[in-house]
Design a protein around this nucleic acid. Structure first.
Length: 499
RNA sequence: GCGCCGUUAGCUCAAUUGGCAGAGCAGCUGGCUCUUAACCAGCGGGUUCGGGGUUCGAGUCCCUGACGGCGCACCA
Protein backbone atom coordinates (compact mmCIF):
# COMPACT_ATOMS: atom_id res chain seq x y z
CA UNK A 1 0.00 0.00 0.00
CA UNK A 2 1.26 3.43 -0.87
CA UNK A 3 -0.04 6.59 0.72
CA UNK A 4 -1.51 8.80 -1.95
CA UNK A 5 -0.80 11.92 0.07
CA UNK A 6 0.71 12.93 3.34
CA UNK A 7 -2.61 14.18 4.66
CA UNK A 8 -3.78 12.21 7.67
CA UNK A 9 -7.15 10.59 7.10
CA UNK A 10 -9.95 12.40 8.83
CA UNK A 11 -11.60 9.23 10.09
CA UNK A 12 -8.61 7.88 12.03
CA UNK A 13 -8.81 7.67 15.80
CA UNK A 14 -7.37 10.76 17.42
CA UNK A 15 -4.22 9.09 18.73
CA UNK A 16 -3.30 7.63 15.36
CA UNK A 17 -3.98 10.92 13.64
CA UNK A 18 -1.69 12.74 16.07
CA UNK A 19 1.14 10.25 15.57
CA UNK A 20 0.88 10.67 11.81
CA UNK A 21 1.06 14.42 12.31
CA UNK A 22 4.19 13.99 14.40
CA UNK A 23 5.73 11.96 11.57
CA UNK A 24 4.81 14.71 9.10
CA UNK A 25 6.33 17.33 11.39
CA UNK A 26 9.59 15.39 11.50
CA UNK A 27 9.70 15.16 7.71
CA UNK A 28 9.01 18.89 7.48
CA UNK A 29 12.00 19.50 9.76
CA UNK A 30 14.13 17.33 7.51
CA UNK A 31 14.32 14.47 10.05
CA UNK A 32 13.76 10.92 8.74
CA UNK A 33 11.36 9.10 11.08
CA UNK A 34 12.77 5.80 9.75
CA UNK A 35 16.55 6.26 9.35
CA UNK A 36 18.45 3.47 7.66
CA UNK A 37 21.23 3.23 10.24
CA UNK A 38 22.26 4.53 13.67
CA UNK A 39 25.52 4.38 15.60
CA UNK A 40 24.59 1.71 18.10
CA UNK A 41 27.58 0.72 20.23
CA UNK A 42 26.05 -1.68 22.76
CA UNK A 43 22.99 -3.81 23.23
CA UNK A 44 21.04 -3.02 26.38
CA UNK A 45 21.98 -6.46 27.68
CA UNK A 46 25.68 -5.70 27.20
CA UNK A 47 25.37 -2.52 29.23
CA UNK A 48 23.33 -4.28 31.93
CA UNK A 49 26.07 -6.87 32.26
CA UNK A 50 28.94 -4.39 32.08
CA UNK A 51 27.46 -1.97 34.62
CA UNK A 52 25.64 -4.40 36.91
CA UNK A 53 27.54 -3.01 39.88
CA UNK A 54 27.56 0.72 39.14
CA UNK A 55 26.70 2.53 42.36
CA UNK A 56 23.71 4.82 42.71
CA UNK A 57 24.12 8.39 41.39
CA UNK A 58 27.40 7.66 39.58
CA UNK A 59 28.84 8.67 36.21
CA UNK A 60 30.76 5.96 34.37
CA UNK A 61 32.63 8.26 32.01
CA UNK A 62 31.78 5.99 29.04
CA UNK A 63 29.80 7.27 26.06
CA UNK A 64 27.52 4.80 24.29
CA UNK A 65 24.83 4.65 21.63
CA UNK A 66 21.82 2.50 22.47
CA UNK A 67 18.53 1.62 20.85
CA UNK A 68 15.21 0.32 22.10
CA UNK A 69 11.48 0.63 22.08
CA UNK A 70 10.02 3.24 24.43
CA UNK A 71 7.87 1.33 26.91
CA UNK A 72 7.56 3.98 29.61
CA UNK A 73 7.92 7.71 29.41
CA UNK A 74 7.94 10.45 31.97
CA UNK A 75 8.48 14.04 31.01
CA UNK A 76 8.98 16.72 33.65
CA UNK A 77 9.86 20.34 33.02
CA UNK A 78 13.58 20.06 32.45
CA UNK A 79 14.25 16.33 32.84
CA UNK A 80 12.74 13.46 30.84
CA UNK A 81 12.87 9.73 31.46
CA UNK A 82 12.16 6.89 29.06
CA UNK A 83 12.44 3.17 29.63
CA UNK A 84 13.93 1.53 26.54
CA UNK A 85 13.36 -2.17 25.95
CA UNK A 86 15.06 -4.47 23.46
CA UNK A 87 13.83 -7.74 22.03
CA UNK A 88 14.84 -10.05 24.86
CA UNK A 89 13.09 -7.82 27.40
CA UNK A 90 16.23 -6.10 28.74
CA UNK A 91 15.51 -2.54 29.85
CA UNK A 92 17.65 0.54 30.27
CA UNK A 93 16.53 4.03 31.11
CA UNK A 94 17.30 7.03 28.98
CA UNK A 95 17.50 10.42 30.70
CA UNK A 96 17.30 13.72 28.87
CA UNK A 97 18.36 16.75 30.86
CA UNK A 98 17.97 20.36 29.77
CA UNK A 99 21.51 21.02 30.96
CA UNK A 100 22.92 18.28 28.67
CA UNK A 101 21.00 18.56 25.42
CA UNK A 102 19.56 22.07 25.46
CA UNK A 103 16.12 23.56 25.14
CA UNK A 104 15.38 22.77 21.50
CA UNK A 105 16.31 19.08 21.60
CA UNK A 106 14.40 18.56 24.85
CA UNK A 107 11.32 20.28 23.43
CA UNK A 108 11.46 18.09 20.31
CA UNK A 109 11.75 14.96 22.45
CA UNK A 110 8.66 15.95 24.41
CA UNK A 111 6.74 16.82 21.28
CA UNK A 112 7.65 13.86 19.10
CA UNK A 113 8.52 10.78 21.14
CA UNK A 114 5.59 8.54 22.06
CA UNK A 115 5.18 5.26 23.86
CA UNK A 116 6.03 2.49 21.42
CA UNK A 117 8.52 4.44 19.30
CA UNK A 118 11.95 2.99 18.61
CA UNK A 119 14.64 5.47 19.56
CA UNK A 120 18.41 5.81 19.49
CA UNK A 121 20.04 7.58 22.42
CA UNK A 122 23.67 8.64 22.62
CA UNK A 123 25.24 9.67 25.90
CA UNK A 124 27.07 8.73 29.07
CA UNK A 125 26.26 5.63 31.10
CA UNK A 126 25.20 6.76 34.57
CA UNK A 127 23.01 5.69 37.45
CA UNK A 128 20.19 7.95 38.55
CA UNK A 129 19.66 9.23 42.07
CA UNK A 130 17.20 6.37 42.43
CA UNK A 131 19.86 3.88 41.32
CA UNK A 132 18.44 3.18 37.87
CA UNK A 133 21.05 2.33 35.22
CA UNK A 134 20.63 5.04 32.59
CA UNK A 135 22.12 6.71 29.57
CA UNK A 136 22.23 10.48 30.02
CA UNK A 137 21.59 11.73 26.51
CA UNK A 138 23.77 14.16 24.63
CA UNK A 139 21.88 13.28 21.47
CA UNK A 140 18.92 11.18 20.32
CA UNK A 141 16.74 10.38 17.35
CA UNK A 142 13.67 8.39 16.57
CA UNK A 143 14.64 5.23 14.69
CA UNK A 144 11.09 4.10 13.91
CA UNK A 145 8.04 6.24 14.60
CA UNK A 146 5.13 4.09 15.83
CA UNK A 147 1.87 5.22 14.28
CA UNK A 148 -0.33 3.10 16.54
CA UNK A 149 -0.56 3.51 20.30
CA UNK A 150 0.55 0.50 22.33
CA UNK A 151 -2.19 -1.01 24.50
CA UNK A 152 -1.92 -0.10 28.18
CA UNK A 153 0.67 -2.21 29.95
CA UNK A 154 -1.25 -2.77 33.16
CA UNK A 155 -4.24 -4.67 31.86
CA UNK A 156 -4.05 -8.03 30.13
CA UNK A 157 -4.72 -7.87 26.44
CA UNK A 158 -7.86 -9.74 25.38
CA UNK A 159 -6.94 -13.26 24.30
CA UNK A 160 -8.25 -12.73 20.80
CA UNK A 161 -6.11 -9.63 20.33
CA UNK A 162 -3.08 -11.49 21.65
CA UNK A 163 -3.55 -14.15 18.99
CA UNK A 164 -4.57 -11.94 16.08
CA UNK A 165 -1.85 -9.39 16.81
CA UNK A 166 0.86 -11.63 18.21
CA UNK A 167 3.42 -8.91 17.51
CA UNK A 168 1.71 -6.77 20.14
CA UNK A 169 1.55 -9.72 22.52
CA UNK A 170 5.29 -10.25 22.03
CA UNK A 171 6.03 -6.59 22.72
CA UNK A 172 3.94 -6.50 25.88
CA UNK A 173 4.13 -9.89 27.51
CA UNK A 174 7.41 -11.51 28.57
CA UNK A 175 5.74 -14.91 28.74
CA UNK A 176 4.79 -14.68 25.08
CA UNK A 177 8.48 -14.20 24.26
CA UNK A 178 9.47 -17.03 26.62
CA UNK A 179 7.07 -19.39 24.88
CA UNK A 180 8.72 -18.73 21.53
CA UNK A 181 12.19 -19.34 22.99
CA UNK A 182 11.10 -22.43 24.90
CA UNK A 183 9.60 -23.95 21.82
CA UNK A 184 12.78 -23.37 19.84
CA UNK A 185 14.84 -24.84 22.68
CA UNK A 186 12.65 -27.94 22.94
CA UNK A 187 12.94 -28.59 19.21
CA UNK A 188 16.70 -28.05 19.37
CA UNK A 189 16.91 -30.54 22.23
CA UNK A 190 14.95 -33.12 20.27
CA UNK A 191 17.32 -32.72 17.33
CA UNK A 192 20.35 -33.09 19.61
CA UNK A 193 19.00 -36.28 21.16
CA UNK A 194 18.34 -37.72 17.72
CA UNK A 195 21.82 -36.72 16.62
CA UNK A 196 23.32 -38.63 19.54
CA UNK A 197 21.29 -41.69 18.61
CA UNK A 198 22.58 -41.65 15.04
CA UNK A 199 19.38 -40.37 13.43
CA UNK A 200 19.22 -38.48 10.12
CA UNK A 201 16.75 -35.63 9.67
CA UNK A 202 14.89 -35.53 6.35
CA UNK A 203 12.16 -33.49 4.72
CA UNK A 204 9.49 -35.38 2.82
CA UNK A 205 6.66 -34.04 0.64
CA UNK A 206 3.99 -31.88 2.20
CA UNK A 207 2.13 -31.88 -1.11
CA UNK A 208 1.08 -35.44 -1.76
CA UNK A 209 -0.89 -37.05 -4.57
CA UNK A 210 -2.47 -39.48 -2.10
CA UNK A 211 -3.39 -38.84 1.50
CA UNK A 212 -1.92 -41.46 3.79
CA UNK A 213 -0.27 -42.36 7.05
CA UNK A 214 -3.18 -41.39 9.30
CA UNK A 215 -6.94 -41.27 9.48
CA UNK A 216 -8.01 -37.70 8.89
CA UNK A 217 -9.70 -35.46 6.37
CA UNK A 218 -7.18 -33.63 4.18
CA UNK A 219 -6.97 -30.18 2.64
CA UNK A 220 -7.14 -30.44 -1.12
CA UNK A 221 -5.30 -28.19 -3.54
CA UNK A 222 -4.50 -28.16 -7.21
CA UNK A 223 -1.26 -28.27 -9.18
CA UNK A 224 -1.35 -26.17 -12.34
CA UNK A 225 1.83 -27.73 -13.71
CA UNK A 226 0.60 -31.29 -13.37
CA UNK A 227 -3.08 -30.36 -13.71
CA UNK A 228 -3.95 -32.62 -10.83
CA UNK A 229 -5.41 -32.66 -7.36
CA UNK A 230 -2.88 -32.64 -4.53
CA UNK A 231 -3.37 -33.10 -0.80
CA UNK A 232 -1.61 -31.24 1.97
CA UNK A 233 -0.16 -34.08 3.94
CA UNK A 234 -1.90 -35.44 7.00
CA UNK A 235 1.24 -37.39 7.98
CA UNK A 236 4.77 -38.05 6.64
CA UNK A 237 4.68 -41.71 7.64
CA UNK A 238 4.59 -43.41 4.26
CA UNK A 239 7.54 -41.37 2.99
CA UNK A 240 9.64 -41.93 6.10
CA UNK A 241 9.09 -45.66 5.72
CA UNK A 242 10.28 -45.39 2.12
CA UNK A 243 13.44 -43.87 3.63
CA UNK A 244 13.88 -46.88 5.92
CA UNK A 245 13.42 -49.20 2.93
CA UNK A 246 16.19 -47.23 1.23
CA UNK A 247 18.58 -47.82 4.10
CA UNK A 248 18.18 -44.65 6.16
CA UNK A 249 17.79 -46.83 9.20
CA UNK A 250 17.26 -44.09 11.76
CA UNK A 251 15.26 -41.24 10.34
CA UNK A 252 13.16 -38.39 11.69
CA UNK A 253 11.24 -35.40 10.41
CA UNK A 254 9.88 -32.36 12.25
CA UNK A 255 7.42 -30.54 10.06
CA UNK A 256 3.83 -29.43 9.60
CA UNK A 257 0.84 -31.69 9.08
CA UNK A 258 -2.52 -30.38 7.90
CA UNK A 259 -5.89 -31.78 8.87
CA UNK A 260 -9.12 -30.33 7.62
CA UNK A 261 -11.00 -30.70 10.89
CA UNK A 262 -12.28 -28.65 13.78
CA UNK A 263 -10.03 -26.48 15.92
CA UNK A 264 -10.35 -26.13 19.69
CA UNK A 265 -8.10 -25.81 22.73
CA UNK A 266 -5.96 -28.76 21.60
CA UNK A 267 -6.44 -28.90 17.81
CA UNK A 268 -5.30 -26.65 14.99
CA UNK A 269 -5.62 -27.24 11.24
CA UNK A 270 -1.86 -27.07 10.83
CA UNK A 271 0.33 -28.45 13.56
CA UNK A 272 3.95 -29.48 13.98
CA UNK A 273 4.60 -33.19 13.98
CA UNK A 274 7.66 -35.23 14.84
CA UNK A 275 7.85 -38.69 13.34
CA UNK A 276 10.79 -41.04 13.74
CA UNK A 277 11.57 -44.56 12.57
CA UNK A 278 14.30 -46.95 13.57
CA UNK A 279 15.24 -50.22 11.90
CA UNK A 280 15.57 -53.24 14.17
CA UNK A 281 13.62 -51.50 16.92
CA UNK A 282 10.25 -52.44 18.42
CA UNK A 283 7.59 -50.38 20.07
CA UNK A 284 9.37 -51.01 23.37
CA UNK A 285 12.60 -49.52 22.05
CA UNK A 286 10.63 -46.57 20.73
CA UNK A 287 8.86 -46.01 24.05
CA UNK A 288 12.24 -45.78 25.80
CA UNK A 289 13.55 -43.30 23.24
CA UNK A 290 10.35 -41.24 23.42
CA UNK A 291 10.72 -40.96 27.20
CA UNK A 292 14.33 -39.90 26.79
CA UNK A 293 13.46 -37.27 24.18
CA UNK A 294 10.83 -35.70 26.43
CA UNK A 295 12.80 -35.87 29.67
CA UNK A 296 15.93 -34.42 28.10
CA UNK A 297 13.91 -31.61 26.49
CA UNK A 298 12.36 -30.75 29.86
CA UNK A 299 15.69 -30.82 31.67
CA UNK A 300 17.46 -28.82 29.02
CA UNK A 301 14.81 -26.12 28.65
CA UNK A 302 13.45 -25.89 32.18
CA UNK A 303 16.37 -27.32 34.09
CA UNK A 304 14.24 -29.89 35.88
CA UNK A 305 12.02 -32.93 35.42
CA UNK A 306 9.41 -31.28 37.62
CA UNK A 307 8.03 -28.70 35.22
CA UNK A 308 5.90 -25.80 36.42
CA UNK A 309 2.76 -25.26 34.36
CA UNK A 310 1.11 -21.97 33.45
CA UNK A 311 -1.41 -22.30 36.29
CA UNK A 312 1.40 -22.75 38.82
CA UNK A 313 0.95 -26.48 39.38
CA UNK A 314 3.88 -28.82 38.99
CA UNK A 315 4.12 -31.85 36.79
CA UNK A 316 6.57 -34.65 37.48
CA UNK A 317 8.27 -36.40 34.56
CA UNK A 318 10.76 -38.38 36.62
CA UNK A 319 10.69 -42.05 37.51
CA UNK A 320 9.35 -44.98 35.56
CA UNK A 321 6.33 -43.97 33.49
CA UNK A 322 3.20 -46.08 33.92
CA UNK A 323 2.21 -48.75 31.41
CA UNK A 324 -1.38 -49.87 30.86
CA UNK A 325 -2.84 -52.39 28.49
CA UNK A 326 -5.88 -51.03 26.70
CA UNK A 327 -8.18 -54.02 27.17
CA UNK A 328 -7.12 -54.62 30.78
CA UNK A 329 -7.62 -51.00 31.83
CA UNK A 330 -10.92 -50.70 29.99
CA UNK A 331 -12.16 -53.95 31.59
CA UNK A 332 -11.22 -52.59 34.99
CA UNK A 333 -12.98 -49.28 34.35
CA UNK A 334 -16.16 -50.98 33.14
CA UNK A 335 -16.11 -53.74 35.75
CA UNK A 336 -16.54 -56.32 33.00
CA UNK A 337 -14.00 -58.25 31.02
CA UNK A 338 -13.57 -56.72 27.58
CA UNK A 339 -11.54 -58.74 25.06
CA UNK A 340 -10.89 -58.51 21.32
CA UNK A 341 -13.78 -60.98 20.96
CA UNK A 342 -16.34 -58.81 22.76
CA UNK A 343 -19.04 -58.18 20.12
CA UNK A 344 -19.57 -54.64 18.88
CA UNK A 345 -23.21 -54.82 19.98
CA UNK A 346 -22.13 -55.39 23.57
CA UNK A 347 -19.71 -52.45 23.36
CA UNK A 348 -22.53 -50.26 22.09
CA UNK A 349 -24.50 -51.12 25.22
CA UNK A 350 -21.68 -49.71 27.34
CA UNK A 351 -21.57 -46.66 25.10
CA UNK A 352 -25.32 -46.14 25.49
CA UNK A 353 -25.23 -46.44 29.26
CA UNK A 354 -22.39 -43.87 29.32
CA UNK A 355 -24.49 -41.57 27.15
CA UNK A 356 -22.10 -41.85 24.19
CA UNK A 357 -23.25 -41.98 20.60
CA UNK A 358 -21.05 -43.28 17.81
CA UNK A 359 -21.54 -43.46 14.03
CA UNK A 360 -23.09 -46.68 12.74
CA UNK A 361 -19.99 -47.72 10.80
CA UNK A 362 -17.84 -47.94 13.98
CA UNK A 363 -16.78 -51.55 14.54
CA UNK A 364 -15.29 -53.33 17.53
CA UNK A 365 -11.89 -51.64 17.36
CA UNK A 366 -13.10 -48.08 17.07
CA UNK A 367 -15.66 -48.65 19.84
CA UNK A 368 -13.02 -50.04 22.19
CA UNK A 369 -10.77 -47.05 21.54
CA UNK A 370 -13.58 -44.57 22.07
CA UNK A 371 -14.80 -46.26 25.24
CA UNK A 372 -11.24 -46.44 26.54
CA UNK A 373 -10.63 -42.78 25.87
CA UNK A 374 -13.81 -41.81 27.69
CA UNK A 375 -13.42 -44.08 30.69
CA UNK A 376 -9.63 -44.18 31.06
CA UNK A 377 -7.68 -41.86 28.77
CA UNK A 378 -9.39 -38.64 29.76
CA UNK A 379 -8.54 -39.29 33.41
CA UNK A 380 -4.85 -40.15 33.00
CA UNK A 381 -2.71 -37.48 34.59
CA UNK A 382 0.72 -39.04 35.10
CA UNK A 383 2.77 -39.80 31.98
CA UNK A 384 1.36 -43.15 30.86
CA UNK A 385 1.89 -45.50 27.95
CA UNK A 386 -1.27 -47.37 26.98
CA UNK A 387 -0.46 -50.37 24.86
CA UNK A 388 -1.83 -53.09 22.62
CA UNK A 389 -4.74 -51.54 20.78
CA UNK A 390 -7.25 -53.41 18.57
CA UNK A 391 -5.55 -54.53 15.38
CA UNK A 392 -8.30 -53.42 13.03
CA UNK A 393 -7.99 -49.69 13.72
CA UNK A 394 -4.24 -49.63 13.16
CA UNK A 395 -3.83 -50.56 9.49
CA UNK A 396 -0.12 -49.73 9.35
CA UNK A 397 0.82 -51.54 12.57
CA UNK A 398 2.22 -55.02 12.98
CA UNK A 399 -0.07 -57.44 14.73
CA UNK A 400 0.89 -58.32 18.28
CA UNK A 401 3.38 -61.16 18.52
CA UNK A 402 1.35 -62.82 21.31
CA UNK A 403 -2.19 -62.03 20.15
CA UNK A 404 -2.94 -61.39 16.47
CA UNK A 405 -6.14 -59.55 17.38
CA UNK A 406 -4.01 -56.76 18.90
CA UNK A 407 -1.60 -54.26 17.42
CA UNK A 408 1.88 -53.60 18.81
CA UNK A 409 1.06 -49.99 19.37
CA UNK A 410 1.11 -47.56 22.27
CA UNK A 411 -0.18 -44.07 22.93
CA UNK A 412 1.60 -41.81 25.39
CA UNK A 413 -0.74 -39.73 27.54
CA UNK A 414 0.35 -36.76 29.60
CA UNK A 415 -2.20 -34.77 31.63
CA UNK A 416 -5.06 -36.54 29.87
CA UNK A 417 -3.85 -35.56 26.40
CA UNK A 418 -2.37 -37.90 23.81
CA UNK A 419 1.16 -36.72 23.13
CA UNK A 420 2.66 -39.49 21.02
CA UNK A 421 1.92 -42.83 19.37
CA UNK A 422 4.43 -45.63 18.84
CA UNK A 423 4.38 -48.83 16.82
CA UNK A 424 6.14 -51.95 15.83
CA UNK A 425 5.66 -51.23 12.16
CA UNK A 426 3.97 -53.58 9.73
CA UNK A 427 6.52 -54.43 7.06
CA UNK A 428 4.88 -57.43 5.34
CA UNK A 429 3.81 -56.05 1.93
CA UNK A 430 1.17 -58.72 1.41
CA UNK A 431 -0.63 -58.03 4.70
CA UNK A 432 -0.18 -54.32 4.15
CA UNK A 433 -1.95 -54.64 0.81
CA UNK A 434 -4.81 -56.52 2.50
CA UNK A 435 -5.14 -53.73 5.07
CA UNK A 436 -5.29 -51.14 2.32
CA UNK A 437 -8.00 -53.15 0.55
CA UNK A 438 -9.98 -53.22 3.79
CA UNK A 439 -9.60 -49.44 4.04
CA UNK A 440 -10.91 -49.17 0.50
CA UNK A 441 -14.03 -51.03 1.58
CA UNK A 442 -14.47 -48.66 4.50
CA UNK A 443 -14.15 -45.73 2.14
CA UNK A 444 -16.82 -47.24 -0.08
CA UNK A 445 -19.03 -47.46 3.00
CA UNK A 446 -18.67 -43.74 3.56
CA UNK A 447 -15.69 -43.45 5.95
CA UNK A 448 -14.09 -40.31 4.55
CA UNK A 449 -11.01 -40.80 6.73
CA UNK A 450 -10.14 -44.19 5.27
CA UNK A 451 -6.77 -44.33 3.51
CA UNK A 452 -6.53 -44.82 -0.24
CA UNK A 453 -4.27 -47.57 -1.57
CA UNK A 454 -0.75 -46.25 -2.17
CA UNK A 455 0.70 -48.49 -4.87
CA UNK A 456 4.14 -46.87 -4.77
CA UNK A 457 4.36 -47.33 -1.02
CA UNK A 458 3.51 -51.03 -1.41
CA UNK A 459 6.11 -51.32 -4.15
CA UNK A 460 8.68 -49.91 -1.72
CA UNK A 461 7.69 -52.45 0.94
CA UNK A 462 7.98 -55.21 -1.63
CA UNK A 463 11.69 -54.41 -1.91
CA UNK A 464 11.93 -55.27 1.79
CA UNK A 465 11.68 -52.98 4.83
CA UNK A 466 13.63 -54.13 7.88
CA UNK A 467 11.62 -54.73 11.05
CA UNK A 468 11.23 -51.26 12.56
CA UNK A 469 9.70 -49.17 15.27
CA UNK A 470 8.02 -45.85 14.57
CA UNK A 471 6.67 -42.92 16.61
CA UNK A 472 4.62 -39.83 15.90
CA UNK A 473 4.63 -37.00 18.43
CA UNK A 474 2.80 -33.68 18.27
CA UNK A 475 5.29 -30.88 18.94
CA UNK A 476 2.58 -28.41 19.92
CA UNK A 477 1.12 -30.90 22.32
CA UNK A 478 4.52 -31.67 23.81
CA UNK A 479 4.89 -27.96 24.48
CA UNK A 480 1.42 -27.91 26.00
CA UNK A 481 2.32 -30.79 28.29
CA UNK A 482 5.57 -29.16 29.38
CA UNK A 483 4.12 -25.68 29.92
CA UNK A 484 0.40 -26.11 30.63
CA UNK A 485 -0.43 -23.61 27.87
CA UNK A 486 -3.23 -23.99 25.32
CA UNK A 487 -2.41 -24.85 21.73
CA UNK A 488 -3.12 -21.25 20.69
CA UNK A 489 -0.27 -20.13 22.91
CA UNK A 490 2.28 -22.74 21.85
CA UNK A 491 1.68 -21.91 18.18
CA UNK A 492 2.98 -18.43 17.39
CA UNK A 493 0.36 -17.63 14.76
CA UNK A 494 -2.58 -20.04 15.10
CA UNK A 495 -5.22 -20.15 12.39
CA UNK A 496 -8.07 -17.76 13.07
CA UNK A 497 -10.91 -16.62 10.90
CA UNK A 498 -9.92 -13.43 9.04
CA UNK A 499 -11.21 -10.23 10.60
C1' G B 1 -22.22 -28.40 12.26
C1' C B 2 -25.73 -27.66 17.03
C1' G B 3 -26.59 -25.00 21.83
C1' C B 4 -25.40 -21.05 25.41
C1' C B 5 -22.84 -16.42 26.33
C1' G B 6 -20.41 -12.14 24.47
C1' U B 7 -18.82 -7.65 20.98
C1' U B 8 -19.36 -0.13 24.25
C1' A B 9 -13.26 5.43 23.49
C1' G B 10 -6.42 3.62 21.41
C1' C B 11 -6.40 -0.51 25.68
C1' U B 12 -9.13 -2.81 29.89
C1' C B 13 -13.98 -2.41 31.40
C1' A B 14 -18.86 0.13 33.68
C1' A B 15 -23.83 1.93 32.38
C1' U B 16 -30.20 0.43 37.51
C1' U B 17 -36.85 -0.99 34.93
C1' G B 18 -36.03 1.12 27.89
C1' G B 19 -34.76 7.64 29.84
C1' C B 20 -28.46 12.97 29.02
C1' A B 21 -22.93 6.83 26.98
C1' G B 22 -18.99 6.80 31.75
C1' A B 23 -14.18 5.38 34.52
C1' G B 24 -8.93 4.07 34.79
C1' C B 25 -4.81 4.08 31.79
C1' A B 26 -3.40 6.24 27.02
C1' G B 27 -3.86 11.21 24.21
C1' C B 28 -3.81 16.84 23.90
C1' U B 29 -2.56 21.96 26.51
C1' G B 30 0.03 24.16 30.66
C1' G B 31 3.26 23.41 35.24
C1' C B 32 7.26 20.50 37.59
C1' U B 33 15.56 18.45 37.01
C1' C B 34 15.13 11.87 39.70
C1' U B 35 10.34 9.71 37.44
C1' U B 36 9.08 3.97 37.78
C1' A B 37 0.93 2.85 36.42
C1' A B 38 4.44 10.21 39.33
C1' C B 39 1.79 14.55 40.71
C1' C B 40 -1.24 19.32 39.88
C1' A B 41 -4.72 22.20 36.60
C1' G B 42 -7.52 22.09 32.20
C1' C B 43 -9.36 19.70 27.46
C1' G B 44 -10.65 16.47 23.66
C1' G B 45 -11.87 11.46 22.12
C1' G B 46 -17.90 7.00 20.59
C1' U B 47 -21.05 4.13 13.51
C1' U B 48 -22.26 1.16 21.66
C1' C B 49 -19.91 -5.10 15.75
C1' G B 50 -23.15 -4.53 10.75
C1' G B 51 -28.33 -4.41 8.81
C1' G B 52 -33.57 -4.21 9.84
C1' G B 53 -37.72 -3.65 13.39
C1' U B 54 -40.76 -2.19 18.02
C1' U B 55 -41.07 2.50 20.80
C1' C B 56 -42.23 9.36 22.24
C1' G B 57 -37.33 7.39 23.29
C1' A B 58 -32.90 1.45 22.21
C1' G B 59 -26.00 0.14 24.41
C1' U B 60 -30.45 -2.15 26.79
C1' C B 61 -36.25 -5.35 23.70
C1' C B 62 -37.27 -8.35 18.80
C1' C B 63 -35.38 -10.33 13.89
C1' U B 64 -31.04 -11.08 10.94
C1' G B 65 -25.82 -11.31 9.63
C1' A B 66 -20.39 -11.15 11.03
C1' C B 67 -16.71 -12.28 14.57
C1' G B 68 -15.23 -14.38 19.30
C1' G B 69 -15.54 -17.53 23.88
C1' C B 70 -17.47 -21.94 26.23
C1' G B 71 -20.01 -26.74 25.91
C1' C B 72 -21.29 -30.93 22.52
C1' A B 73 -19.83 -33.60 18.03
C1' C B 74 -15.14 -34.97 14.84
C1' C B 75 -9.80 -35.20 15.43
C1' A B 76 -3.74 -35.57 17.32
Amino acid sequence: MTAQSGEPSEDLPEQMRIRREKRERMLARGVDPYPVEVERTHSLRQLREKYADLETDTRSGESVGITGRVRFIRNTGKLCFAKLVEGDGTEIQAMLSLAEIGEESLAEWKAEVDLGDHVFVHGEVITSKRGELSVLADGWRITSKALRPLPVAHKDLAEETRIRQRYVDLILRPQARDTVRNRAAVVRSLRDTFEEHGYIEVETPMLQALQGGASARPFVTHSNAFDMELFLRIAPELYLKRCVVGGIERVFEINRNFRNEGSDSSHQPEFAMLEFYQAYATYDTMADLTGELIRRAAERVFGTLTVTLADGTEYDLSGQWANLRMYDSLSEALGTEITPDTPAAKLREFADSAGLEFPAHYGHGKLVEELWEHHVGDHLHEPTFVRDMPAETSPLTRQHREDPRLAEKWDLYMRGVEIATGYSELVDPVIERERFEAQRLLAAQGDDEAMPLDEDFLRALEYGMPPSGGVGMGIDRLLMALTGLGIRETILFPQVRPE
